[in-house]
Amino acid sequence: MKQVVAVTAAAGVAAAAYHWLARSDPPDAGILPYRDPQAVALGEAVYLDNCASCHGADLQGEPNWQDRDSDGYLPAPPQDESGHTWHHPDAQLLDITRRGVAEVVGDGYRSRMGGFDGVLTEEEMLAVLAYIKSRWPAEVIARHNQINSQAGD
């Protein structure tokens, strides 16, 4: 009887631990293939060709990216963990990449980042975002996965 209770208790602890781990870092949260080396390699090449001129070769963004310039535009933000990209779920990041910031935000918002629909394929857009995500520290990736889980991606 004691063995049955011990095994049952151990199973309950293991199940609780698994549930907690699964909630804190869902293994398949989101739609970005950031764990796929081929997708990440494609994303790096596409990023360097299409995004690095504004967002920087090292994802660092433009200087003073939080301050509007003399024309009223915000400079390109960093795509690394110091920026706010990881605060948005995958579906929203893909929508921004596809349609552009101004189109997604609406209400007359102005942005120099236009959409890449018709320029990049869906696979290329997902790969770029996967490359960006793959460069974040593990704790930022885990938090971003939580954001995706809460958003239903």
Rank of each mutant, 00 (worst) to 15 (best):
R23D: 15
R23W: 15
S24V: 14
P26N: 15
P27G: 11
P27N: 12
P27R: 07
P27V: 11
G30D: 11
G30L: 10
I31L: 15
I31N: 13
L32E: 10
Y34I: 11
Y34G: 09
Y34Q: 13
D36W: 08
Q38H: 12
V40Q: 06
V40M: 07
V40G: 06
L42S: 12
E44P: 02
A45K: 09
A45M: 10
V46I: 12
D49I: 01
C51R: 02
C51L: 05
C51D: 09
S53L: 03
C54M: 01
H55V: 06
G56Y: 01
A57V: 07
A57S: 06
D58G: 08
D58A: 07
L59Y: 04
Q60P: 12
Q60A: 13
Q60G: 12
G61T: 04
E62I: 00
P63D: 09
P63Y: 02
N64K: 05
W65D: 12
Q66Y: 00
Q66I: 02
Q66P: 01
G72A: 06
P75W: 01
P77E: 09
P78Q: 08
P78E: 08
D80I: 02
E81N: 06
S82T: 14
H84R: 04
T85L: 10
W86S: 05
P89G: 11
Q92G: 06
Q92V: 08
Q92E: 14
L93G: 03
L93D: 08
L94G: 04
I96G: 04
T97L: 13
T97I: 07
T97P: 02
R98W: 04
R99P: 11
V101S: 13
A102K: 03
V104I: 08
V104G: 11
V105L: 09
V105K: 10
G106S: 07
G108A: 05
Y109C: 06
R112I: 14
R112G: 15
G114C: 04
G115E: 15
F116A: 06
D117R: 00
G118N: 07
G118Y: 07
L120W: 07
T121F: 09
E122F: 01
E123I: 04
E123K: 03
E123S: 08
M125F: 04
M125H: 02
